[in-house]
């Protein structure tokens, strides 16, 4: 491990781009979903579970709203994954290991939620 090597500035630019993209996509999906629901007069609060997003019974508006939430929720997770890849390329093994632990924690979170 090259302990005195500076991390490249491009890491930050990539993370910034990723966060902005995730935010914009999720906000656009939520806005469209909201507009469709209001336009159709369907503004009833319906629980949307993560694993039911492809369920036929959901309206298009609810599905887009749920998808927007999912994209937003996945953005920080993809940020962790991106840094893991970038640090692997930099051979920063200590922090690759740490980021893998975070990924494991997030997988446990999804798995525990799914087995409710």
């Amino acid at each position: 491990m090259a302990s005195d090597t500076q991390a490249p500035a491009s890491d930050r630019k990539r993370v910034q781009f990723l966060l902005r993209s995730g935010l914009i996509v999720s906000m656009v999906l939520m806005t469209i979903g909201l507009v469709i629901n209001i336009n159709n007069g369907h503004i009833e609060s319906v629980p949307v579970a993560m694993f039911d997003l492809l369920n036929e019974s959901l309206t298009l508006g609810d599905r887009l709203l749920g998808l927007g939430v999912l994209v937003l929720a996945l953005t920080p997770a993809i940020r962790v994954l991106t840094l893991t890849i970038l640090w692997t390329r930099e051979k920063d093994w200590k922090f690759v290991g740490i980021s893998i632990l975070v990924i494991i924690a997030l997988i446990i979170s999804i798995t525990l939620g799914g087995h409710a």
Partner: peptide
């Protein structure tokens, strides 16, 4: 989200 507490 998985337990259905999210109401978008």
């Amino acid at each position: 989200f998985a337990r259905g507490y999210v109401q978008p």
